[in-house]
Design a protein around this nucleic acid. Structure first.
Length: 286
DNA sequence: ATGCCCCCGGTTCGGGGA
C-alpha cells in the first residue's frame, strides 16, 4: 500500500473495538470538532483531556445525542478528564489513588465496561519549569510523585489481571527522537531521568504502547505548538499515548495519529490518537 | 533571551499550557 498521509487511513471496521484519545484544550470550544470526529470515526471509547470546564458545564447532552455516555471529572481553568463510551460504563474512580495532592487536580478517571475491561484517561502533570528554584522544584516533584502513583495503580491492575487501556497526554518526551529538536527540552520536565525513568516503568510493568507500536506517521508527533508556525514546520512532540494491558496488546490491530484534525479550523494543539483491536465486539463482551 | 498562540477567569491582563 502506498505510504500516503496518515489521514488517508481507512475508518476501522465498525465491528471491531476502537479507542481514541484526544487532549481537546477546552471541550466547549472543541465541541463542533469533537462531534465531527465522533461521527467520522465512531470510536467505541473516547478518552478526553484538558476539558477546562466543570462537570456542570460539560456538554453531556450534545455528546449523548452523538451516541455516547459520559463519565467526567471536570475542573475550571485547566485540567479535566473524561471517558465517553457507546456502551454502558460505570465509574471506578475519578481520583488517582495516592496522587500527591490527594487528587485535587482533575487528571485521572477510570471507567469500567460491562465486559470488566477498564478505560482510563490521564493528564500527566506538565512539571515545567523544572528549574532548581523553589517553585520549579515543587512542580517537578509533583510530576514525579504523580507518576509514582500512576505506576502503583498500574501494578495493582496488573496484579488483579484486569484488562485496560490507559490513554492520554503523558507530557513525557521518551527519547530524543520524539521531538523536533531536543535542545530546548534538555534537562527539562519532559526529559529529565526522573521523569523518563518513571514513564518507562509502564513498559517494564508489561504494558504495550499502541501508537508507538503501530502508527505509520513519521516523524511520530501528536502535539504541535500553536506558536511560531510549529505545525507548518512539523515542529512536533510525541506526547499522547495509548498503553494496553497484555490481553488488549494481544488483540491490537492498528493504531495511529489523526493528524488531519490538527489542521482544522479552531482545533486543539494536540491531534487525536487511536487504536483498534481484532475480534468482533459482540464476541469479546464489550 | 523572549515572545509568538490559545484558552480560562472575569474583565482588557495574568496564569497556564509545553
Amino acid at each position: 500500500m502506498d505510504a500516503g498521509p496518515e489521514h488517508s487511513t481507512p475508518v476501522p471496521d465498525s465491528t471491531e473495538l476502537s479507542v481514541s484519545s484526544w487532549n481537546v484544550n477546552s471541550v466547549k470550544v472543541r465541541l463542533p470538532l469533537l462531534t465531527e470526529y465522533l461521527k467520522e470515526y465512531s470510536p467505541d471509547v473516547m478518552l478526553l483531556q484538558e476539558l477546562k470546564t466543570e462537570n456542570e458545564s460539560f456538554p453531556a447532552l450534545e455528546l449523548m445525542s452523538a451516541g455516547y455516555s459520559c463519565l467526567v471529572r471536570g475542573q475550571k481553568g485547566y485540567c479535566g478528564v473524561a471517558v465517553l463510551s457507546k456502551r454502558p460504563i460505570k465509574l471506578i474512580t475519578d481520583v488517582l489513588p495516592d496522587a500527591p495532592d490527594g487528587g485535587e487536580q482533575a487528571r485521572y478517571i477510570e471507567a469500567e465496561a460491562e465486559s470488566g475491561e477498564r478505560f482510563i484517561s490521564v493528564y500527566v502533570p506538565n512539571g515545567s519549569p523544572a528549574a532548581s528554584d523553589t517553585d520549579g522544584t515543587a512542580r517537578l516533584e509533583y510530576k514525579t510523585a504523580w507518576l509514582d502513583a500512576l505506576n502503583a495503580r498500574v501494578s495493582l491492575l496488573m496484579k488483579k489481571e484486569i484488562s485496560f487501556v490507559l490513554g492520554g497526554d503523558f507530557n513525557v518526551i521518551e527519547t530524543d527522537g520524539d521531538v523536533y529538536d531536543i535542545r530546548p527540552f534538555e534537562n527539562g520536565a519532559f526529559t529529565v531521568p526522573a521523569v523518563r525513568g518513571r514513564f518507562r516503568k509502564l513498559a517494564f510493568a508489561g504494558l504495550t504502547e499502541a501508537v508507538r507500536e503501530k502508527a505509520s506517521l513519521r516523524p511520530l508527533y501528536t502535539y504541535w505548538d500553536y506558536q511560531a508556525g510549529a505545525r507548518r514546520k512539523n515542529d512536533g512532540i510525541f506526547l499522547d499515548r495509548l498503553f494496553l494491558s497484555p490481553a488488549f496488546a494481544d488483540r491490537l490491530k492498528d493504531a495511529g495519529v489523526r493528524d488531519a484534525y490538527r489542521d482544522k479550523e479552531k482545533t486543539s494543539d494536540h491531534a487525536p490518537v487511536w487504536c483498534s483491536f481484532f475480534g468482533r465486539k459482540e464476541l469479546i463482551g464489550f
